[in-house]
């Protein structure tokens, strides 16, 4: 594996509740390479967004929230930087786009100003220079008639167009890593694929690392190079996309894949995963998926499983006692 552009080590983000501190993200380690698309997948509340927000340093000002671990970016541990230093990286070298294009743009500022702002913060551009650059950025994300739309406000844009504006804003300073938190979830299906295709195209062209957060396995299959499956705040499986889809190892990943509705199969085979993700104050101490797992054994409720490869493998990591013990062939 080449030198990762960003390396998250043992990231834990805990929230203070009435009865103590509870981790929403626990011991997450991830390396992302330049030029790759890594998908973080999992159900709502599994800690995907918190992982990205923590890496961006956006959780540090949240009251009752504590981030531990390391986030390495170019010989810098971002978790050790003060807010002032972090601000010079955020929106500059690391950028993020959010799920809700409707509410993520400021309703009272013109689009041009919002897109140009990072350039004024990080490149010291004047408003006029930033506006000129904003036109180029809006054209990059294929917003027609960009110059005229510069002075328009978010309410004059459709959902898909607003998400393009968000992407333009995130790309303003040419980031090395782009976190995209469910960028297409709030959009119509046809618009979804347009925006995804745009993201993919721009990433290829500009060679940054894309960390895409999604719960849509269809999106994963289209765009991801590697996939990290999260459950209950932990990564339970990490593998190349093709490997994960062909031979998922963690029972949760299997269940996720089975839960995708497919037009070429009878709908009665569609499997839902029984139960729900437990709340963070009521996480099983050992394997977090154990209560919902069909393969559950005694050890699963007694001992916390490690995320590791099976003998011989290097890139396919799984956090499962059962699957990491028996070989896949004999289990099948």
């Amino acid at each position: 594996m080449a030198q990762p552009i960003i390396s998250i080590r043992n990231l834990t983000t805990a929230f203070k509740l009435r009865s103590g501190w509870f981790p929403a993200v626990r011991d997450v380690s991830l390396d992302v390479e330049r030029n790759e698309t890594l998908c973080l997948v999992g159900e709502s509340g599994c800690g995907k967004s918190i992982t990205a927000m923590s890496a961006m340093g956006l959780m540090r000002t949240v009251k009752g929230c504590r981030v531990t671990g390391e986030v390495w970016f170019e010989d810098l541990d971002l978790t050790k930087l003060d807010e002032h230093a972090m601000r010079t990286i955020r929106g500059n070298r690391l950028a993020m786009i959010f799920q809700e294009p409707m509410t993520s743009l400021n309703p009272v500022l013109p689009i041009g100003q919002q897109v140009g702002e990072p350039l004024m913060f990080h490149r010291g551009m004047t408003r006029h220079e930033a506006d000129e650059e904003a036109v180029r950025l809006l054209e990059l994300v294929k917003i027609p008639d960009a110059r005229r739309r510069l002075n328009q406000y978010p309410h004059q844009f459709s959902g898909g167009m607003r998400q393009r504006v968000m992407i333009a804003m995130a790309l303003a300073c040419g980031p090395d890593v782009l976190f995209a938190d469910e960028p297409t979830t709030a959009l119509d299906v046809t618009i979804q694929s347009q925006v995804l295709a745009l993201l993919d195209e721009i990433r290829e062209e500009h060679a940054f690392a894309l960390v895409l957060i999604t719960h849509d396995m269809g999106v994963v299959a289209t765009i991801a190079d590697r996939v990290a499956v999260m459950y209950g705040g932990e990564i339970v499986e990490l593998a190349k996309t093709s490997v994960l889809f062909k031979s998922p190892r963690h029972p949760y990943t299997e269940a996720l894949l089975k839960a995708i509705p497919r037009s070429d199969q009878d709908t009665k085979d569609l499997c839902a995963i029984e139960g729900q993700v437990p709340p963070i104050y009521d996480m099983p101490p050992a394997c977090r998926f154990a209560p919902r797992c069909e393969l559950r054994e005694e050890i699963c409720v007694e001992e916390h499983p490690d995320l590791r490869t099976r003998r011989g493998g290097k890139t396919h990591l799984t956090r499962c006692h059962v699957r990491n013990r028996v070989s896949r062939r004999s289990a099948a």
Binding site: M56, L58, T61, R87, T88, I89, R90, G91, N92, A95, M96, F98, E100, T103, S104, L105, N106, P107, E117, P118, F121, H122, M166, M169, A170
Partner: peptide
């Protein structure tokens, strides 16, 4: 508490801005 404040912070906007 609005989403656009999170966006502004993600851009690296200074606290005063």
């Amino acid at each position: 508490g609005a989403d656009y404040i999170r966006t502004a912070r993600a851009k690296g906007a200074p606290a005063l801005v």
